[in-house]
């Protein structure tokens, strides 16, 4: 599956909440090939913008239209610039990059996501069967949970926790996960902040449930060359950009 560089145009920029946006981009070759868990590496082409590309997990694809969606939260210089793009603006996309999620016969499945970590899980859930898939979402407040609408068509149950208790169970995803894990899930996929993924992975290992995690690291090339994004694995050094970003939790020892 060769990676390609595409000159891409913005098709749609849509606010999902006060700080989160969906960006739809023309990228026919990438849309054709990308699998859930892989990412694209985006470079802004306006002068004076950040030199390095930034990685974004693909949230959805439309092969017919030749588009991909990313969902991002405005958090720094790069995402502030990204949020200013309007339809027909151009940018450069490198992808598809990385190893996606393991999709082989996952059985009854629980997705666990926090914040924009839910974006790659959205692409994943569109490829799993709704009748055997549930999602557990963690957020700070109920305002962040526009994700419910996005996941609703693809899952049976949506479980929610909020840090402030404004919706669902009060607390983090760990307030619900241990009890959920006793309900016969055969596979967990988790994507979110590192402490959350570590806690979920540990809980899954304790219950002997296979768990896939999606790591995030600052990276430069995205192709396994610069070693900016490496971390220690249980058996070897891992390159998050090419060995991952999707890993079995048991491969990872440095969160």
């Amino acid at each position: 599956m060769p990676k390609v560089l595409e000159q891409s145009g913005v098709v749609l920029q849509k606010p999902l909440d006060a700080r989160t946006y969906l960006l739809r981009l023309n990228a026919a070759q990438i849309a054709e090939q990308v699998v859930p868990g892989q990412f694209v590496h985006i470079k802004l082409t306006m002068p004076g913008e950040a030199l390095l590309r930034h990685p974004f997990g693909v949230a959805a694809v439309d092969k017919t239209q030749g588009t991909i969606d990313i969902i991002y939260r405005v958090a720094g210089e790069f995402t502030r610039a990204l949020a200013k793009l309007t339809p027909c603006d151009r940018l450069s996309i490198l992808g598809p990059l990385g190893r996606g999620f393991d999709l082989a016969a996952p059985g009854r499945t629980l997705l666990v996501g926090g914040g924009t970590g839910l974006a790659p899980l959205l692409f994943l859930v569109s490829r799993l069967g709704a009748e055997k898939t549930d999602v557990l979402m963690g957020a700070r407040t109920k305002e962040e949970l526009f994700w419910q609408k996005l996941f609703r068509p693809f899952v049976q149950h949506i479980f929610i926790t909020t840090d402030d208790g404004s919706l669902g169970t009060h607390g983090t995803v760990m307030a619900l996960l241990p009890s959920l894990l006793t309900q016969g899930y055969q596979r967990v996929y988790v994507c979110g902040p590192s402490p959350m993924m570590k806690a979920v992975a540990n809980a899954c290992e304790a219950q002997d449930v296979a768990c896939q995690v999606s790591l995030e690291r600052y990276m430069a090339c995205g192709m396994g060359a610069c070693l900016s994004c490496t971390c220690q694995g249980r058996e070897k050094r891992l390159k998050v950009c090419t060995d991952g970003p999707a890993f079995w939790s048991k491969e990872v020892s440095e969160w």
């Binding site: 030199l51 990276m219 430069a220 070693l227």
Partner: peptide, 11 residues
Amino acid sequence: RVVSTPSGILN
């Protein structure tokens, strides 16, 4: 290990 700077990067 890496960060963008004006017209450059630090690694």
